[in-house]
Design a protein around this nucleic acid. Structure first.
Length: 560
RNA sequence: UGGGGCGUAGCCAAGCGGUAAGGCAGCGGCCUUUGGAGCCGCGACGCGCAGGUUCGAAUCCUGCCGCCCCAGCCA
């Protein structure tokens, strides 16, 4: 059905395909995306979302959205709302399967009781500090807690007291009784429940004990009959514990955990802790600042869901730690927008040009195509007059070799308009160029000369009397180094923040720009892709964010 | 140095015993009313290293080396 036969294979797809072929789980494929609502989702989560929902879609299965909300101290409804919005924006639908680990608290509590009754869990009154010491080290085994052999009755009673709030935070925990000498530290009697007298965003003050990740996550998967529980590499050595939880309780199903490498992207950070810090300490303007690698940041930056999904597909899924080039993400956006974004002309840094032989007071409308890649997107009219603005960088008084743009005596084409030749340069008392004088060839209307004369350069322009003012935000990478964490002793990633990640310019745009809607994507010819800012753009005061520049061959040539 | 993982081109990534896919980046060229787009071409003599098995090894075996993760009552 898909014409795309190049879908790259990856190990998870292979496993699921095999399972389905062998009739495992009755051929059912059920995944889940399990975010903790303690921050905004970032591009790394997008990879996971695309994988989980993608596998479900591909194998005719389902994917749940489940909030892993077992730590009330860090979780907020603002985060769950943003997460839902982001998943939806990416184009995925969890239908009626919006779940919360907190929905299962009662059931999980019962599972814990079951463990206690089987003699596989106990209430430990060691202090947090003692527990750490008893745990041993990477090379030395741990020691059993003196409370490890409490009777089932005693544990049952104590656990109920924990639930009833009879103990204070940190006084005791419920622990799995596994093996304090296990070479896998996660198996040295891990905590299953701890006391937290905090308000939970959904269950309010109903509970004072909360299940730990390993216990809650594995059993939530089992409760939802998840078949393939996909998570990242750092949980690899939690898998024995995941299995232990599911096997030692009368779980309704037997899910399997499979781990893959998380995404890292050059020139940015993807750790919730660091992103939170950037927001809290105001290095950026919120979670959706267009420089943030959050999904909401990319959305506001002008990225399309299609481009993000394409990116997720192209990076692949494997178990190798990796840092993907930002250039791949940018490529995906350009490729998408090239075919879909209408073109407009906007002069970012204006330089006035007076066309001396063009009649004063005259105005005409020229035809411009909206997208040379797609004729169905039609044409528009662009007004022309004696005075226009051109890009400052499109003029050089003393140009280097291979500079095809405007310079004294040179002729260039004004896109969709006329050939002009620079005749004079006007400067102010400081020697600053403030205006150019040019002449035009009336016969070259539309951009071609009947005598077949060729020009090497074509530049964009905007008619002075018709120009619309717009604020344009030029974004650059938030960090100076490909790896922001590459720092000297005593320094942090914050020292690698790029001080020039945002430049705001007042630009002159063609009048058609006055009609755009917030969120619309455009290509400003020769400059890049821009989006009308979702929050601040109005028809009265247009505001655009640069999503990504165009590939700039000239920049490479001029650097040599 | 206990356990768990991973090492294929600058960055991703296929490959699973038969003689190194693909993408991004980069570099040439063609074309062009965006120095955009598009099109064509170029990169491993080699798959962390060293041995071994085999007619044949990135793929199997052995030994090294390097990198990542784990000692939260975080997820």
């Amino acid at each position: 059905m898909e014409e795309k036969t190049t879908t790259p294979s990856h190990f998870i797809r292979t496993i699921i395909r095999e399972d389905k072929k062998n009739g495992k789980n009755d051929g059912r494929v059920h995944t889940r995306f399990p975010p903790e609502p303690n921050g905004y989702l970032h591009i790394g989560h997008a990879k996971s979302i695309c994988l989980n929902f993608g596998m479900a879609e591909e194998f005719d299965g389902k994917c749940n959205l489940r909030f892993d909300d077992t730590n009330p101290e860090k979780e907020e409804v603002e985060y769950v709302e943003s997460i839902k919005e982001d998943v939806r924006w990416l184009g995925f639908d969890w239908e009626d399967r919006e779940y919360y680990a907190s929905d299962y608290f009662e059931q999980l509590y019962e599972f814990a009781i079951e463990l206690i009754k089987k003699g596989k869990a106990y209430v430990d009154h060691l202090t947090p500090d003692q527990i750490r010491k008893y745990r041993g080290t990477l090379t030395e085994p741990g020691k059993n807690s003196p409370y490890r052999d409490r009777t089932v009755e005693e544990n049952l009673e104590l656990f109920e007291k924990m639930r009833n709030g009879d103990f204070g935070e940190g006084e005791c925990v419920l622990r799995a009784k596994i093996d304090m000498a296990s070479p896998n530290i996660n198996m040295r009697d891990p905590a299953l429940y701890r006391i937290k007298k905090a308000h939970h965003h959904r269950t309010g003050d109903k509970w004072v004990i909360y299940p730990m990740y390993d216990f809650a996550h594995a059993l939530s998967d089992a409760i939802e009959h998840i078949t393939h529980s996909l998570c990242t590499l750092e949980f690899e050595d939690h898998r024995p514990l995941y299995d232990w939880c599911v096997e030692n309780v009368s779980a309704p199903s037997r899910p399997v955990q499979i781990e893959f490498a998380r995404l890292n992207l050059s020139y940015t950070v993807l750790s919730k802790r660091k992103l939170l810090q950037l927001v809290r300490e105001k290095y950026v303007d919120g979670w959706d600042d267009p420089r943030m690698p959050t999904i909401s940041g990319f959305r506001r930056r002008g990225y399309t869901p299609e481009s993000v999904r394409d990116f997720s597909e192209r990076i692949g899924v494997a178990k190798k730690d990796s840092i993907v080039d930002l250039s791949l993400l940018e490529f995906c956006l350009r490729e998408d927008l090239n075919k879909r974004a209408e073109r407009r002309m906007a002069v970012l840094r204006p330089l006035k040009v007076v066309i001396e032989n063009y009649p004063e007071g005259q105005t005409e409308e020229l035809d411009a195509v909206n997208n040379p890649e797609d004729d169905s997107m039609g044409m528009r009219k662009v007004p022309f007059s004696r005075e226009i603005y051109i890009e400052r960088t499109d003029f050089m008084e003393d140009p280097p070799k291979k500079f095809f743009r405007l310079y004294p005596g040179n002729e260039v084409r004004l896109r969709y308009a006329y050939f002009i030749t620079c005749t004079d340069v006007v400067k102010d008392e400081n020697g600053e160029i403030i205006e150019l004088r040019c002449t035009y060839d009336p016969a070259s209307r539309g951009g071609n000369s009947p005598d077949g004369r060729k020009v090497r350069g074509t530049i964009h322009w905007v008619s002075v009397p018709h120009a619309v003012d717009a604020e344009v935000r030029l974004y650059d990478n938030l960090f100076k180094k490909p790896d922001p964490d590459d720092v000297d002793e005593g320094r942090t990633f914050l020292d690698n923040i790029n001080p020039n990640s945002l430049e705001v310019v007042n630009t002159k745009a063609e009048p058609a720009i006055g009609e755009v809607q917030a969120g619309d994507n455009f290509q400003f010819e020769r400059m890049g892709y821009f989006v009308a800012d979702k929050k601040e753009h109005t028809s009265g005061k247009p505001v655009f964010n640069r999503s990504v520049t165009l590939r700039d061959t000239w920049a490479k040539i001029s650097k040599k």
